[in-house]
Computed example of a mutant assay.
Amino acid sequence: MIVEELQSHQQTLSRVIETLIPAIEQGSNMLSTVLRSGAKVLIAGNGGSAADAQHIAAELTGRYVKERKALPAIALTVDTSALTAISNDYGFDHVFSRQIAALARPGDLLIAISTSGNSKNIIHALHTAKEYGCVTLGLSGRDGGEMNALCDLNIVVPDDTTARIQEMHILIGHIFCKAIDAEY
């Protein structure tokens, strides 16, 4: 089982290397451009993708590897009072879009993470981010789902298995952070 899991991961990584390097580079450049402009990064996802959102935000506000200035990034998954109040009052489909309406400014970047590309609250978040003039960067899998039409760039991991997609999402997030470290 262990060997099979590692081989499955390796196969997905090989497909990522074969197909996504230009998109990962473009995503890194988007993130860099936004941060250099003084704008902030908002990140949203559900479940494991929520953990990835928090992880990436922490790497930007803290540090990835090298000492550098703190950078503005907010995971929209961490405020339990906001999450529960918004879900109660507006429905879970609006848990991220309502926060974006409160926090986003033109030029900010929303990183939307969904392994299916179809999570309703992520789709609503992308619509709201566009309304507020944000740049939108998706991390998805499978066929990219509805996110394909809503993201300025949707990086679609070429796999159908949630675990493999999530493993690649955090790897791509780390590559983004490494690129940012190189600039500061």
Rank of each mutant, 00 (worst) to 15 (best):
I2D: 04
V3Q: 13
V3T: 14
E4S: 15
H9G: 01
H9P: 00
Q10V: 03
Q10N: 10
I17W: 03
L31F: 11
T33G: 06
V34M: 02
L35Y: 11
L35T: 04
L35S: 02
R36G: 01
G38P: 09
A39P: 02
V41S: 05
V41R: 08
I43C: 04
I43N: 00
I43D: 00
A44W: 04
S49N: 04
S49A: 09
I56A: 01
A58K: 00
E59C: 04
G62F: 10
G62N: 04
K66F: 12
R68W: 11
R68C: 05
S81P: 02
A82I: 05
A85G: 04
S87C: 08
N88I: 11
N88M: 10
D93W: 05
D93K: 07
I100T: 10
A101M: 07
A102Q: 11
I113W: 12
N118W: 13
K120P: 07
I122T: 13
I123A: 02
H124V: 09
L126G: 03
A129T: 10
C134R: 01
T136V: 15
L137I: 12
L137G: 09
S140P: 08
D143S: 14
G144D: 09
C151E: 03
D152V: 14
T161L: 06
T161K: 13
A163N: 03
R164M: 07
Q166V: 07
L171V: 14
K178Y: 12
A179R: 13
D181E: 04
